[in-house]
């Protein structure tokens, strides 16, 4: 009887371990290397939060809101914070076409130098919309891992893009909850 209880307890704790992993059992721990370059795709304000999360997680990062391929030197991971902000674009003196070109060129440069891509979408439901979705659809299939705040994936948009390519997708409740999986994703 006692033994049965122990087994149950062990199974109980294991179930938590499985819950923490993405559904299809892909690797999300220790798959990236530092230092990383954090930039936004769409000039959103969440890029700043990604930097704070990285700092709190004790990761080595550089934040560059309008990063170009040249900044990828000595960088081991490219972190793209997804979400178009018209206000952010306006403040940076950009439009969506220019921003898309910059992101495309950056990703191409990253692929040439074999720098893996980690995509974050932290703005939730309010940071979606046609422009953001178009950008996500273009960028996401190239990512090695994706992390989203749950409300942003309420319609399963990220799941639909990640599943066919077998890209690990980590969902978190709140922005602050992204710190731990972010920390774990790095060696």
């Amino acid at each position: 009887m006692k033994k049965n209880c122990d087994v149950l307890v062990i199974l109980f704790w294991f179930s938590f371990a499985f819950l923490a992993m993405p559904g299809n059992g892909q690797e999300t721990v220790g798959i990236f290397e530092q230092p990383m370059l954090i930039t936004s795709a769409g000039q959103n304000a969440e890029v700043q939060i990604a930097a704070v999360l990285a700092r709190r997680a004790g990761l080595n990062y550089t934040l560059s809101k309008q990063a170009t391929g040249a900044e990828l030197e000595n960088v081991k991971t490219l972190v793209l914070v997804l979400g178009a902000s018209l206000k952010g674009l306006g403040a940076a003196g950009l439009d969506m076409d220019k921003e898309r070109d910059r992101v495309r060129a950056l990703i191409t440069a990253a692929q040439e130098t074999h720098v893996p891509l980690l995509c974050l979408h932290l703005g939730g439901e309010s940071r979606r919309g046609q422009q953001t979705d178009d950008l996500i659809a273009e960028v996401l299939p190239l990512a090695k891992m994706v992390m989203v705040v749950k409300s942003g994936n309420g319609d399963g948009f990220f799941t639909r893009l990640c599943q066919p390519k077998n890209i690990p997708l980590v969902e978190v409740e709140k922005m602050a909850d992204a710190q731990v999986p972010l920390q774990k994703a790095f060696k």
């Binding site: 304000a45 969440e46 700043q48 939060i49 930097a51 704070v52 999360l53 206000k87 952010g88 403040a91 309010s126 709140k174 922005m175 602050a176």
Partner: peptide
Amino acid sequence: ALALLELQAEGFDIRLEA
């Protein structure tokens, strides 16, 4: 950004505007 994370942890939904 730090303040936003703290506020969200306390249950206040708030956004950042540059």
